[in-house]
Computed example of a mutant assay.
Amino acid sequence: MDLRSPKLHKILDTWIEEDLGHGDLTRFVLNERSVSAHWVAKEDGTFCGGDLVKLIFRKIDPQVDIQLLIEDGQKFKKNQRLLELKGSSSSLVAGERITLNVAMHLSGIATSTALLVAKLSGSDVKLADTRKTTPGLRIFEKYAFHCGGGINHRLGLDDAAMLKENHIEWSRGIKESIKILKKTIPWTKKIIVEAETPSQAKEAVEAGADGVLLDEMSITAIAKLVPELRQLSKTNDFTYISKNIVIEVSGINPDNLSDYVFTGIDLISTSAPITKSKWIDFSMRFD
């Protein structure tokens, strides 16, 4: 996540405008002076959002000083101090809710991701996210997924060409679609096919796909199919073949991740950490 991105700054400005509006009305009751505060975790988890917190506070007031006591991706315990702040009382109050909301949401995703990644420990299988994200928050939620130890799938429709069920149904088929894509999209872009049957997966590999996503297949079927796909990627005669096929699975119960470790796949993609994780509870306490 590039903190210099104009798009990112525009989003943060929108968040601040949403909460502050024409200005915090409670500032009139504050004795405007320099104060200090800290954040404390109210449960265990994996932290995410520190640099965003700093950036938001400094947009509100460049004089606010923030000392992070933990880095993104690090684990924390209940009652642990996470960061310390110094600045004017009105500035700390103005930035409190926005920053806590962001960090609690992203830390929830990072925490959930880390728990799933732990189930794949000791294997070469990676956990990837999906495009099932909150509109407007994708870059942040995918960053949180990464902080939890996962890897990012495509960021959008322009990131890679992925043929799903509808594409296959509404086109001339897998082989012809891949042939068209090879001629039309930049050579730096990948082509992925979501296969619901072994025959679709084999056709995708034979046609030169860079990756095949095996959707909602049984562990037994996957374990049998993977060696066949690896062999196909080495032996077929298509001139535009991808020699290093990436095999991914999706549509599985996250509780059963470890069962897929020995099937020979490369990736497991899941939306669960982003769509189903709960916020981690933090509190800002004034010294």
Rank of each mutant, 00 (worst) to 15 (best):
A144D: 04
N31W: 01
E18M: 05
P6R: 09
I247Q: 02
K175V: 10
L163A: 11
A204G: 10
E84L: 09
R230P: 00
Q74T: 04
K86P: 00
S90G: 00
K142S: 06
P135Q: 07
L25K: 00
H9E: 07
F282M: 01
Q63S: 07
V64S: 00
L12N: 05
T26Y: 05
N244R: 15
F47N: 01
V205M: 00
K234I: 14
L225E: 10
G50Q: 06
S258F: 05
K132M: 15
E165G: 11
G45C: 06
E71H: 13
A37N: 09
S269P: 15
A118G: 05
Y260G: 10
A114V: 04
D51R: 06
P273N: 05
E43P: 11
H22N: 04
V117N: 03
V226H: 01
F76K: 04
A221W: 02
S88K: 14
L8I: 14
F57S: 01
T197W: 08
R131S: 07
T130D: 08
G208I: 13
V117T: 12
L25F: 02
T220M: 00
G73C: 02
G49C: 03
H167V: 08
H38V: 07
G173N: 12
G21K: 02
S218A: 08
L20T: 13
F238A: 06
A144Q: 07
D255S: 14
A128G: 03
F76D: 08
I192S: 08
D124P: 00
M284C: 10
V212P: 07
V93C: 03
L82Q: 03
R285C: 03
A209S: 13
D158C: 01
D158V: 02
E96S: 08
S177L: 12
V246H: 08
P135Y: 05
D287W: 12
A118W: 04
T14E: 12
I168S: 07
M162Y: 13
L163N: 15
V212D: 02
K234S: 11
A160W: 09
K75E: 14
Q80Y: 09
T14F: 10
L213C: 05
K234N: 13
L68N: 11
H9P: 01
V193E: 01
V226L: 10
F57G: 00
L181A: 03
S233P: 01
T134F: 06
A128M: 12
M104I: 05
E176T: 15
S89T: 15
N79E: 01
